[in-house]
Write a protein that binds this DNA or RNA. Structure first.
Length: 351
DNA sequence: AAGCCTTACAACCGCCACTTG
DNA sequence: TCAAGTGGCGGTTGTAAGGCT
């Protein structure tokens, strides 16, 4: 027997909200707040809506200071970077984009950003193919080494090439989807940022004036449960320099004086420190960790130390997700890096 | 001009985690 | 300790609007 429904579905209106309904909901919440109970709220106002629906309408549409549409190039980059780092955890991504809702970002990613990136990628691929073809003809056809390098390595990032391609594709019947995802991932890498799935290669270059603060992104709910650490330029290094033993985001300044924000993971040997038992959190992210051939990258050739387990095996969902890894290279606009440590952008972390 | 197709986005659904009694 | 209630989240669907043939 299933759970009781949260509302009487027969007497609940569905579909688009009318302006009158919007006005009722908005004015009530502005005057009285939600009362901490969304389920009871529609009855109080006299709306024939499900409480969940009211909540959604308020959060995604009626709430003040919301922005709709018109995503900027910078926002695109932030979304891409965070998507690579943490996957489709839209609420966390939305938390980094003031005025944006998770629903907005999710829609934007699914309908536009993904396609936009694929379009760019295809152009680059075509260009590469045409130039590669010329080179190939120059090299001669029977050079297996040269062609295998081209096929297997995306040598555009100092981080990726060191990752080995070891694990076979776990579900080969999803090739089209995987190929699309692979394309996006590769393009994102080209666009900038050090996107590395492997903690082993998350060695952060020494930075001056660096601040470290821990960020546990292993579980979205956990994020909210831990004490929020508000990072601001005035926050002391000592206050932030706490190593949780999991994910570390490092805020610093590079040689050129530009702010940097990088992530790394202090996984213990065997990389079993984080249990991502909620597999759905990573759905859709697997392509970011796979290579051209649909294989998944592991950080070492030793199978016992494989970092990225087979994503096809849903029964063993113990694998680290790539830590938040943001740098001031082309991928992340300087504005974001400068603004990130503002009091408004509270970053949850362990203490 | 009409019909079909595509796109964008609001809204819903179902699941999971947390809270409370 | 456990079950019910609730909030929150991500995935998916429905549909209006615009574009294309």
């Amino acid at each position: 027997m299933g759970r009781a429904p949260c509302c009487d579905k027969a007497n609940v209106k569905k579909g688009p909200w009318s302006p009158e309904e919007d006005a009722k909901l908005k004015s009530y919440i502005e005057q009285h707040g939600t009362g901490g109970n969304w389920i009871a709220l529609p009855q109080k106002i006299g709306l024939k809506r499900c409480g969940k629906s009211c909540r959604l309408r308020w959060l995604n549409y009626l709430r003040p200071n919301l922005k709709h549409g018109g995503f900027s190039e910078e926002e695109d980059n932030i979304i891409c970077s965070l998507y690579i780092s943490i996957g489709s955890r839209w609420s966390i991504i939305a938390a980094q984009l003031p005025g944006r809702t998770d629903n907005d970002i999710k829609n934007y990613w699914n309908t536009r950003l993904k396609k936009k990136l694929l379009g760019k990628q295809r152009k680059e691929l075509q260009a590469r193919r045409s130039s590669g073809l010329k080179q190939e003809m120059g090299r001669g056809k029977d050079n297996p080494v040269a062609s295998s390098v081209d096929n297997n390595i995306v040598n555009v990032n100092p981080c990726w090439p060191e990752l080995h391609v070891l694990t076979p594709i776990p579900y080969s019947n999803q090739e089209p989807r995987l190929n699309d995802h692979t394309s996006i991932r590769k393009l994102l890498i080209k666009l900038g940022g050090k996107f590395c799935a492997d903690p082993q290669y998350q060695l952060i270059q020494p930075t001056t004036n660096s601040l470290q603060y821990p960020i546990d992104i292993s579980h979205s709910q956990q994020l909210y449960d831990h004490q929020l650490i508000s990072i601001s330029p005035s926050t002391s290094v000592e206050a932030l320099n706490v190593d949780s033993g999991s994910h570390i985001v490092q805020y610093g300044v590079d040689e050129a004086g530009l702010p940097t924000l990088e992530g790394r993971s202090n996984f213990p040997e065997g990389f079993e420190g984080i249990d991502y038992s909620n597999s759905q959190r990573l759905d859709g992210l697997e392509f970011l960790l796979s290579d051209d051939m649909g294989n998944y990258r592991t950080g070492t050739s030793n199978p016992g130390e494989a970092i990225i387990d087979s994503f096809g095996d849903v029964s063993s969902q113990i694998y680290p997700i790539p830590p938040v890894t943001l740098t001031n290279s082309e991928g992340i606009p300087p504005r974001f890096l400068q603004e990130f440590p503002s009091p408004d952008l509270r970053y949850p972390g362990l203490v």
